[in-house]
Design a protein around this nucleic acid. Sequence first.
RNA 1: GGGCGCGUAGCUCAGUGGGAGAGCGCUCGCUUCACACGCGAGAGGUCGCUGGUUCGAAACCAGCCGUGCCCACCA
Length: 854
Amino acid sequence: MDAAKREQLEQHTRYEPGEIEARVFAEWMAGGYFHPEATGTPAENFSVAIPPPNVTGVLHMGHALNGSMQDALVRMNRMRGRNTLWILGTDHAGIATQAVVEKELRAEGKTRQELGREAFVERVWEWKEEYGSRIVEQYKRLGASCDYERERFTLDAGYVKAVHKVFKALYDKGYIYRDNYMVNWDPGTRSAISDLEVENREVTDSLFSIDYPVQGSDRVLTVATVRPETMLADTAVAVNPEDERYADLVGKFAVLPLVGRKLPIIADAHVDPEFGTGALKITPGHDMNDFEIGRRHGLDEITVIGPDGRLNGEAGEFEGLSVGEAQRAIAARLRDKGLLRDEQPYTHAVPFSHRSGERIEPLISLQWFCRMDELAAPAIKAVADDEVRIQPEQWKRVYLNWMEEIRPWCISRQLWWGHQIPVWYCGDCEADPVVAEVAPDPAKCLQCGGVLVQDEDVLDTWFSSALWPFATLGWPDDTPELRAFYPTSFLTTAREILFLWVARMVMMGIEFPGAIPFRDVYVHSVIQARDGRRMSKSLGTGIDPLEEIDERGADALRFGLLAMSSTQDVRYSDAKVEQGSDLANKLYNASRLILLNAAEVAPAPRTARLEDRWLLSRLERTIASVSAKLEAFDFSHAVQDAYAFVYGDLCDWYLEIVKPRLYEGEEDVSATLLYALERVLALLHPTMPFVTEELWSFHPARDGHLAVHPFPDADDSLFDPDAEEEVAEEIALTRSLRTWRDLVGVPAKAVLPAVIDGMAPSEFVGRLSRFAFDGVGSEPVASVGPVRVLGSDALDAAAVEARLGKRREELTAEIERAERKLGNKGFVAKAPGAVVEEERGKLARYRAELAELG
RNA sequence: GGGCGCGUAGCUCAGUGGGAGAGCGCUCGCUUCACACGCGAGAGGUCGCUGGUUCGAAACCAGCCGUGCCCACCA
């Protein structure tokens, strides 16, 4: 260490992350450590594809947690010498991004329609170029060791190529098709959305009972509905085929009130005879169930609600009303005519758009769909056979259940921003559409020579996201990256995108590159707000990771998030982040003590002394446990084990024990401490990269950045159970002595005279407990384990006596407990021998101590 | 309607059959020459309730109460 560095360490008594993080990150980038060559095989290499954040996004706690987990494993594997790639990029996020730019336009008093599609898309690209890299910069603040030179975007040129190839291939196989079908229509975005973008909410509506007269009879059929406004599009009334009440009416007709249309009375098993009157109005144009019943019975499909959520020309006098207005108007009209038999409050689940928050309007429209059964089959097998391992285990079943019931995926969206569907139609004739990977040139119809026009819709954003692990590596081209890094090693993710994204990547990975996209999927917990509510921008409950980094440092946030993570959801804990910053500071100060005082020796484990063997054994066990837990995605216990070692074994005990040796510049302890420090810094680097890298820069053995320094492998030749046991006993004795003197109220600095029976403990026991075992003093006045405390001025006789009485009570209670247990015949007969022996040993010790106390 | 979780110290959470743990908070004592973002010590839990299995249950089983999430086309 040169003089300047030494002075720096001497002068700063606290770790200041703010001054260090940017500089250290720049050094990593300059070193090019995050940008691997595309060499080697996927089996040798280690690679991860980051879940691509939305370009519109800013870093939130979910990203920070997920990033901390990924970076821990990525860094550990890079340090282990594997060729490691962590690829990052952003998602074009169709609806979200389009909405942001539209909002900007509105502020300027313009609309996208005024601009026209081409200019609008241009405008979105401009927005993306200007703001789209914010979140990438924010990942750097976190310390994420991504390959920032291989950044991708789900709408870049190479990605478009991949999407078109996949679309055409699935179309050619017959999986992708176009159909007039009922979809979840979102009047807010005026687009179809997929089942997964719908969320059901509990809503209290009115349940109306309406009389439908039966033609040529004085009977009426009373139907129950929460949506009387859709009756204008009714095309039948259905009853259950087993329902004897209505058996004679099947085949006859009901007359639709207000409209007068004749509705066939049909029988369908879907109808529940127990619900309401057992008669169901059928509206194939506006209800998912009715749509299917309609198709089964060949009913007409009438549409009275338009894409804007208002009634259309088919609604006659009600045209132009919103559905809510129409409902009130129609209910009033029925009431006037005496056909509204009943109206009751009714609570049920109603679909809403996850995107716009508006109520979904089921509509029949012409959309592109992808059949999923064939794609799902091998993706089910891959997970069922643990080729892709989902952890925690419970999510495997959730995945399998969903996949087994998978339904066609509506992949078209009525937006402008996204992958425009690569299908071209002739405007002049009925020729089959052209589906192609690149735009037809010339854009002429082969049949009639007319102009070909591309489908106006774009693909669901998740269609492109599904290709992420391989499209980012250059697929469909046979690139060095693809050969070196696909399949990737693992994926960590929030459970909310298990179906939306993870399942689809597995399907597409198997179908296209022909291999599962990752071996392990780790589903992490959700970090909730401090009060247990969901963290959300709209609720104002979000906590900004960047503010936390500013305040306490990236290492502190990373440690805190990993420590609070769990298999169950947890509330954000400031205390855990503080624990992280405390640990960073502790490491810093322990390093100062070691580096400023150690003799100039090469780091090496020296085992001549008991306490050194103890420390080394504890160190290697910690390395073993922390590594094993990181590999098992058990981040929380991994970092807390590391914390316990640094705070407890290393700082509270070992450093205090060896201070005299260290100040003397003794070589064994210097070599051992330098060795331990090197290994601790490396061990913690994957989770706390900044502080460890900074401290490593002061270490005499430094030969380059810690980011590419070997990760420690536990050296089991240094495991020493005897030393661990012996020192553990001495530590326990030290603690009993400290406790005793505290409870007896001895002045903190007083050194108490004592003698010790039957053992010669290490020097530190007396020093750290402030006892002098030289036998100089008066008669023994108390016993603490093997120690006889001698009378002295520092002792208060009454307090000593009180403590003695308290201890007798404790021992008596313990003896009673042990005797009761050993007196239980069942226990002695059936419990394992070792357990019984242990209990006998305790009893003997307690009795001996009590006898000693008198 | 199905499925999956959770209920342990004042708070946030660990702990899957052998005497209840951590961090924070609290109390007491320390300006001990790495760190007051520190050091030492302490107080504080009928482990939601009721039954069961077991020599032994916070843990396993059943029921109940409370709470959260996911899936679902009974109007």
